[in-house]
Amino acid sequence: MIAQLGLYLSYPFVRYALIVGVLIALCSSLLGVTLVLKRFSFIGDGLSHVAFGAMAIASVLRLSNQMALVLPLTVLSAVLLLRTGQNTKIKGDAAIAMISVGALAFGYLIMNVFSTSSNLSGDVCSTLFGSTSILTLRPLDVWVCGILSVVVIAVFVFFYNRIFAVTFDESFAVSAGTAADRYNLLIAVVIAVIIVLAMNLVGSLLISALVIFPAISAMRVYKSFRSVTICSAVLSVLCALLGILISILAGTPVGSTIVAVDVAGFFLCCLAGRIRGGA
């Protein structure tokens, strides 16, 4: 088994894929806490469906770089969803449901009608649940992912204190002179980028898991914003690494393996939280 792993790792491309997987996991965990606490999870979910629709269009158009279409469309939807979500609560929720379900249906429809691929259900499945193997990631994707991840991490670190302020108490932040609207927009755009990135790794249906599980796991154990953020980043990276290695060795689909490891991590954290809390 170790020998087999060594063989795989001797291919530079497998190593790159591992690095990118880790970077994506790191990014996706960073805004998890904000997403959960700001009740933005629904936006994340809606956006992942939009990303699926955009991906369907991109694959029908046979774009060589699908990201060039998927990224702008998803970011645009993030901005629109945030706008509608802020107006009136109920209308905003309905708008998100409409957009996300509509995008899902529309995406499948055009894939079905226009796709010339011989393996349609395979295509749909890999868009929804991620590539069956990390080895199917192409070099261009790997580079784009790597660069975007670094940008996301840099933005998060630079605006960390403002993101905390806006997440904890938006009214106070505005009263203290912070342009909360601008940071909400920033958060929404970064979430959109993360979703598009994570889509390569785990597919559009499993993205929310990648974003939210590390955060709620970390919240079980740690009690300050900084330690929760660090813990969820570390946890997410470990789970992704483990998931990718398992999927390479056992030949399981990457996305669902990573999420399965995340779920296991969540139960471990619950247990750890219990023990810490009880002691």
Partner: peptide, 19 residues
């Protein structure tokens, strides 16, 4: 939301300095 927000006292008081 704030009642079960994971944040330390210092983190919150420090956010008063955001202006």
């Amino acid at each position: 939301v704030q009642r079960d927000f994971p944040a330390s006292v210092m983190e919150i008081v420090l956010s008063g300095c955001q202006g």
